[in-house]
């Protein structure tokens, strides 16, 4: 059932498993997927900004309103807005893919999107 030299095969297999665990994680860590901040106004894409470049810009929304979008430290938030309720200003900064800040009066959606969104694992059978 067992022989001394079997240990070579077992240790090789475990080494391989360890490498398979560490190497893709390391590669992923070295090059994180690029994320963008997508701004849409009234359902149409207005602009996309890379999330790792600091930015301050005023965006003109629907019906004469406007808001000030700030991107810093890999996070995006609305600093000020012309809308009456200021829900978008109170919203915490967003940084993860899929998070978004919505300003209804201005009809502006600030959304985090990622390069890898289209590359998700799904089962094929």
């Amino acid at each position: 059932m067992f022989r001394k030299k079997d240990i070579i095969i077992y240790s090789l297999v475990l080494l391989l498993a360890g490498a398979a665990y560490i190497i893709p994680a390391a590669v992923r860590h070295a090059k994180p997927p690029a994320s963008y901040v997508r701004v849409s106004i009234d359902g149409r894409i207005y602009a996309e900004y890379p999330i790792d470049e600091p930015l301050e810009t005023v965006i003109d929304g629907y019906a004469g309103g406007s808001l000030k979008l700030v991107i810093s430290d890999g996070r995006a938030y609305v600093e000020s807005s012309s809308c009456p309720d200021k829900i978008c200003v109170k919203h915490l900064p967003v940084s993860y893919t899929g998070e978004c800040i919505i300003c209804m009066p201005n009809r502006i959606v600030v959304e985090i999107i990622s390069d890898e969104t289209g590359q998700q694992i799904d089962a094929v059978s």
Partner: peptide, 19 residues
């Protein structure tokens, strides 16, 4: 190929095959 080397038991060869 591993079995032809004659160093390894059936179990170890099977593990290599499974992996």
């Amino acid at each position: 190929l591993l079995a032809r080397i004659r160093c390894f038991s059936v179990t170890a060869v099977s593990v290599a095959g499974g992996v």
